[in-house]
Simulated assay, not measured.
Amino acid sequence: MPQITPNLTEDDGALTRACEDALIAIFERYDVDKDGALSNAELDAFAKDTNGDVFDEDARAEITEFLDLDFKGDLTLKGFLQMYNLQTSSEPEETWKDLQKHGYDTNLKLVASRSEDRDEKPKPKAK
């Protein structure tokens, strides 16, 4: 019997609770300073881990123009979810790829940390 994967969006186009919860957890992982927004450096780290490179100038311009930013111009959680809602409505397979990159299975359960984290060698203990 084939496994049925959950939808990422509701019938009205809103992200499902499970998808939103996974995206919030990913956002919180990259919001290193815990100020509720992704600075350029935090956004770069997210983009590199997700896509292998930082966002280009066009993508940054779209983020700045169309998504929710804080008073410093940093991407808020609301903006991050807006970004994924837009992507998911047109290319759900890209959102699935992103979620899997960040350790989520097809049931939107966190099963592993990023592959880069898994591949790191344990650091020797200080004597």
Rank of each mutant, 00 (worst) to 15 (best):
E42C: 06
G103W: 00
T95K: 00
T5G: 05
S90I: 14
S39K: 04
S39G: 04
K121V: 03
E93I: 06
D49A: 14
A18Q: 10
T95F: 00
D21C: 06
E65L: 07
Y84M: 07
S115R: 14
K78P: 00
L15A: 03
D70H: 05
H102Q: 14
A22G: 02
R118S: 12
E116H: 06
P2K: 11
D44S: 14
T16E: 00
E116Q: 12
I24R: 11
T16R: 00
P124W: 08
R118E: 15
S89T: 10
F55H: 10
G52C: 04
F80T: 03
E65M: 09
G36I: 09
K78F: 01
S89P: 00
P122Y: 04
D68Y: 06
Y104D: 00
K78H: 03
E62Q: 11
D31F: 06
I4W: 02
Q87Y: 06
A41W: 02
K127G: 10
A61D: 15
D53T: 05
D70I: 11
D49N: 10
C19G: 04
L8Q: 02
E57N: 09
G73R: 10
L43S: 15
D49F: 00
K109D: 04
F27R: 03
F80K: 05
T88G: 08
L99T: 02
K127D: 07
F71Y: 06
L67Y: 15
Q87H: 08
P122N: 09
F71C: 04
E94K: 14
V111Y: 04
P92C: 02
Q3C: 11
K97Y: 13
D117E: 15
G103N: 02
I63D: 05
K121L: 13
K48Q: 13
D56V: 08
V32Y: 07
S39H: 08
S90M: 08
Q82D: 12
S115E: 11
D98P: 00
T50M: 09
L43F: 08
P2E: 08
L81N: 12
S89E: 13
D117R: 09
F27C: 05
A61P: 02
K127V: 07
A14G: 03
W96N: 01
P6M: 04
R60F: 02
Q100M: 10
G52V: 12
E94V: 05
S113I: 02
R114A: 13
S89K: 12
E57A: 12
R118W: 11
L38R: 02
Y30W: 07
N51E: 04
A61R: 14
F27G: 01
L99M: 07
L69Y: 05
T5F: 11
A25T: 15
Q3L: 15
E28C: 11
S89N: 10
E28D: 14
A22F: 01
E57T: 14
K101V: 07
A25L: 07
L86F: 08
T64F: 04
E116M: 07
L69A: 09
K72C: 08
D53L: 03
R29D: 10
D44R: 09
E28I: 05
V111T: 11
D58W: 09
F71R: 13
